[in-house]
Design a protein around this nucleic acid. Structure first.
Length: 495
RNA sequence: GCCGCCUUAGCUCAGUUGGUUAGAGCGCCGGUUUGUGGAACCGGAGGUCCUUGGUUCGAGACCAAGAGGCGGUACCA
């Protein structure tokens, strides 16, 4: 490597941006299968497909406004030619609120729609956490009816089933934010700025129950917690008695939905707001029960709160009860693969009038990664049969052969390179092709085709140690008349 | 953002108290075998030892700063 050469060419390093993922093969097929399964279910229930742009004006996305100092905190934002700030959407809900507000008069309400596509968050990436990921959302806008919430819950369960999970392999948890509001009001957390801040800490602390355990959450509710790395997190500053009450509430879940509701009623039943909430939850329970969803996959769970601030009523979460390991053999604990709830305030930001809404969202990337590693989705990733291109002037006939295979639903391709036969065999092997079609001069002159079974070939090779025998072994291939092409390939592919 | 650990070939990693020309396995390429991938044997290519500065006669190794990666934690409208 001469100095002159080094100076001549600048080469950028081939590397992908942090927190962004290349997706291909089995994993991408899993994602697509998941998106399709969810979309089909939403569509069958009468939800309208809706696609909104990746960019929105930043002020439309939320109360977030990019400031000069850190325009990209949380979201990816750019300043347009006209000095207006654009930001990549960070979920599908905010664009929906914008769409509904903008087209309010023309929409049949309640308006029900589903959306699938990537969303972006400019946050620190971690395992199973990316800066770009796909969400599939279904939302119902324009009704306060708990029936709409019940429908969301059942849709979530149906999607879980739709991707092949049995009812003991997934769980849908239900809770209601209003119950926590009542509880905290009882404990003296006021509706002031300071109180709302405190409430936020409480909600986020409860959200961490599964990760930190009750002891950790207890610290976060009280004075604060120091983690293993020595970092200190400020607590909510509740009294010991108040902490006990909050924890008692999170423990009030039972296996049986009715028992959970009566336990909550005993704890909070005197309040008017709690009565409203329990009424709604009872109606949800009736509908879910009538539809036949049994107690082992749909629960009321008071410890589920969801981290986001905008929920105003029932909240839901979908969990997978399976353990998987990643490429490096480490256990993948994904926890929830989807969540949602009622948010009655979002559209009001635009319209000034309250437009109640409820929705559910699946984190497709996370969900699909889990399913893919369990070989539960995308296992239809079968490599194509490769038609070798041995004689350059016979390409037309190779194309014809591949087309015949495709007509019989066999994934097939013609080798597109210019290398010799050995390289073509290596190519087919590396692709994982189940078989190759070999038609060279010999076959062509005789009006024949040869099909080699690559899987069988590699099995046979394991038993051969002698080099000469190795060369001679072509037991894994057979030759027949040209007209028998599809037949012979078919026979090779079926075990 | 805060805390900890890490960074040597495409990948996983060795590399002695600081001492000539930095290694292994796997992978890759070629050959044995010019119409046959996968086994076996033989050969080959491939390195800014993350970067910069310092200590030293001499640094992959020691020191400092920076960058990147991993993990934890926080934030996540």
């Amino acid at each position: 490597m001469s100095k002159a050469k080094k100076q001549k060419s600048f080469r950028p390093k081939a590397r992908k941006a942090k927190g962004f993922e290349d997706r291909h093969g089995k994993l991408l097929r899993s994602e697509n299968a998941l998106i399709k399964a969810a979309s089909d279910i939403f569509d069958a229930h009468g939800f309208e497909p809706l696609s909104t742009p990746a960019f929105e004006y930043a002020d439309a996305l939320g109360k977030f406004l990019p400031d000069e100092e850190r325009p990209n905190a949380g979201v990816f934002a750019i300043e347009d030619d006209d000095k207006q700030w654009l930001a990549l959407r960070y979920d599908h809900t905010a664009p929906l609120a914008r769409f509904v507000a903008q087209n309010y008069d023309g929409l049949a309400k309640p308006f029900r729609r589903f959306s699938a596509g990537p969303v972006w968050r400019n946050e620190k990436p971690g395992p199973g956490r990316f800066r770009e990921f796909i969400q599939v959302d279904a939302d119902t806008v324009g009704t306060k009816s708990p029936a709409a919430d019940a429908e969301m819950i059942m849709l979530a369960a149906k999607v879980m089933q739709g991707v092949g999970l049995t009812s003991d392999e997934f769980t849908i948890y239900i809770n209601d934010r209003r119950l926590l509001d009542v509880l905290l009001a009882d404990l003296g957390v006021a509706d002031t700025t300071e109180g709302l801040l405190q409430k936020g800490i409480v909600v986020r602390a409860i959200d961490k129950l599964d990760r930190l355990g009750e002891r950790g959450v207890e610290l976060l509710l009280g004075s604060g917690r120091k983690d293993d790395s020595g970092d200190y997190t400020k607590g909510a500053g509740l009294t010991t008695a108040a902490i006990a009450k909050v924890l008692a509430f999170t423990r009030s879940g039972h296996q049986d939905r009715n028992n959970t509701l009566s336990a909550i009623e005993k704890l909070l039943g005197n309040s008017e707001l709690a009565k409203q909430s329990l009424n709604d939850l009872n109606m949800i329970n009736d509908l879910v029960t009538a539809a036949g969803w049994d107690e082992n996959c749909v629960f009321f769970e008071p410890s589920i709160v969801r981290g986001l601030g905008y929920y105003t009523g029932p909240v839901f979460e979908a969990n997978i009860n399976l353990q998987a390991t990643d490429a490096k053999g480490r256990p993948m604990n994904f926890g929830s693969v989807g969540g949602g709830g009622r948010y009655d305030g979002l559209v009001a930001r635009f319209k000034g009038i309250e437009v109640p809404a409820t929705g559910f969202s699946f984190g497709v990337s996370r969900f699909a990664a889990l399913m893919s590693s369990l070989d539960r989705l995308g296992d239809q990733d079968i490599a194509p049969v490769v038609v070798l291109a041995l004689e350059p002037d016979q390409m037309a006939s190779y194309f014809t052969m591949a087309e015949e295979l495709r007509a019989d639903n066999i994934r097939a391709e013609v080798y597109m390179g210019t290398s010799g036969m050995k390289a073509q065999m290596k190519y087919a092997d590396k692709r994982g092709a189940p078989a190759v079609v070999i038609v060279g001069e010999d076959e062509r002159m005789a009006g024949n085709i040869t099909v080699k079974n690559l899987n069988l070939g590699s099995k046979i090779s394991e038993q051969i140690t002698d080099n000469v025998q190795w060369r001679k072994a072509n037991a894994a291939q057979s030759t027949d008349k040209r007209s028998m092409l599809v037949n012979l390939v078919q026979k090779t592919l079926t075990p």
